[in-house]
Design a protein around this nucleic acid. Structure first.
Lengths: 182, 182
DNA sequence: TCAACATGTTTGGGTTGCCAAACTTGTCGG
DNA sequence: CCGACAAGTTTGGCAACCCAAACATGTTGA
């Protein structure tokens, strides 16, 4: 199996990801971002933010002007935008395709946004773009809705029977040739 | 919105999740599991595994017999199975629906398996079950393949143009407009 | 001018989780 | 019986992160 700790060697940690996206969001929202704003927004203390941002400043992702106002470097912007885009796409995938309630989709997307590979995120984007294009055709919409109903039929516990059986089938080593369009 | 650190308050950490699923896998594979086996499988030292498993034993998730052979308690089995099932479902979702290459799908699934909510995992299962049922309908299969082609059309970088534009549209479509990204 | 308050930083503590290295056990061939 | 080796544990270090609390600064109203 691939290194399960790839997790840790991420370019930016879960914590750092949220610091960056928060700064970006604050800039968009109120035009400036200070340590206190970030702390309030993340629900952690100013001290923690101060320390974390010192690191991100040293790594060249965050910039501070002479008035203690924070902003992102070019690289910081890239990273923040990437993470933000991933969150939006994953959330939309869970919501639009799987039919998961928006709050749940958002929570899950938020937890995994910085872990998903570019490739998978891009695929999600492509899929959603394609879905958008054909969603004018009500026939496909009906099919998708049918699938979503199936997906949303919540059993009392996870994993439900059908889901567990499916997982078992999937687990068995290459049972039947599945379609790999790539 | 929900605490972004929900991450941390997971019933089982990323590390613990892998210890549990590794023990389960070793039991299935070779009939027994010892500290050394787990360490080898995870690529970490025996010392680390020893310490971690002491905690999991105290939490009642792992049991050790009189011959230093490890197994899972009822609760441990539940947790391990849940995580394993989630990994399989997420991997299948990425591979079968989004058309992501299997290795990438596996890596991503591995990184997020313990973070995804039961509800989303169940929805993924339901969706895949439904997909299996109607995949005999060649029309739908063609459509799915079309969507996968769209999804797999990898641009040189993430996010690609169309993907970025979609993300922007999705972001603005937010009905509340006051969505805090924290 | 200055007390009060908000903001930012520093410091000492705590947790998780990894490693290296020393130490303890248990088993096995000679 | 014993040396050797594998397996397991313990211990001290390190790196992220978090908090609380003390401290430093800066702005502001009376």
């Amino acid at each position: 199996m691939s290194d399960w700790r790839e997790f840790e060697q991420n370019p930016v940690s879960h914590s750092a990801a949220h610091h960056l996206t928060t700064i970006q969001w604050l800039l968009d929202d109120q035009g400036y971002a200070r340590v206190s704003d970030v702390a309030r927004h993340l629900g952690i203390t100013r001290g923690s933010v101060s320390v974390t941002l010192k690191g991100l400043r040293q790594r060249g992702l965050v910039v501070e002007d002479d008035h203690k106002h924070l902003s992102l470097s070019e690289e910081g912007i890239q990273i923040a935008r990437g993470i933000r885009t991933k969150r939006i796409l994953i959330q939309a995938l869970f919501r639009e395709v799987l039919g998961v309630p928006d709050e749940v989709a958002e929570q899950d997307a938020c937890k995994v946004e910085h872990l998903i590979s570019d490739q998978t995120a891009e695929a999600a984007g492509g899929f959603l773009v394609g879905l958008e294009k054909i969603s004018l055709d009500s026939q496909w919409t009906l099919l998708l809705e049918s699938l979503q109903r199936q997906a949303a039929a919540t059993p009392t516990s996870f994993p439900g029977n059908e889901t567990q059986e499916l997982a078992l089938r999937l687990e068995k080593k290459d049972p039947q040739g599945e379609d790999h369009p790539s």
